[in-house]
Amino acid sequence: MPYHFLDHTGDVGFELEAGSLPELLREAVAAFAGTLAEPERLGGGEVRELEVAAPAPDLLLHALLEELLYLFEREGFLAREGEMEVRGEEGPLRLRARLHGERWDPERTALKLLVKGVTYHRLAVESRAGRLHGRVVLDI
């Protein structure tokens, strides 16, 4: 599993590792699904598309996660995976995401916890030894 959960006393967080920013964002979708539910119990038959922009990779990761949270709270849609396209070599980074998931069904999938917000505390996307490393703390 290319993401792992952080041991935060009050909240939850995860760290991600990938070879590229789109790959890291894909991991973030999986990590978010894994925070809320058992991802292997989630179907992928429904699709949602979204676009977000941010001035830096860490803020793009933050913006994506906020959209995932909103989709879940608004319509119960829980994405388990996604295809990511990132543009913006000059100027803000723009993400187009095509998300695969399903509306959460409490009869089929137990929810592990509820997320209140995506924090900026220790938020990071850094390049180390040719790999990208991301970190996020969620308020629950």
Binding site: H8, T9, G10, D11, T119, Y120, H121, R122, V137, D139
Partner: peptide
């Protein structure tokens, strides 16, 4: 007190 985000809880 415990570890929060930004402010401590």
């Amino acid at each position: 007190i415990h570890w929060g985000y930004g402010f401590p809880i």
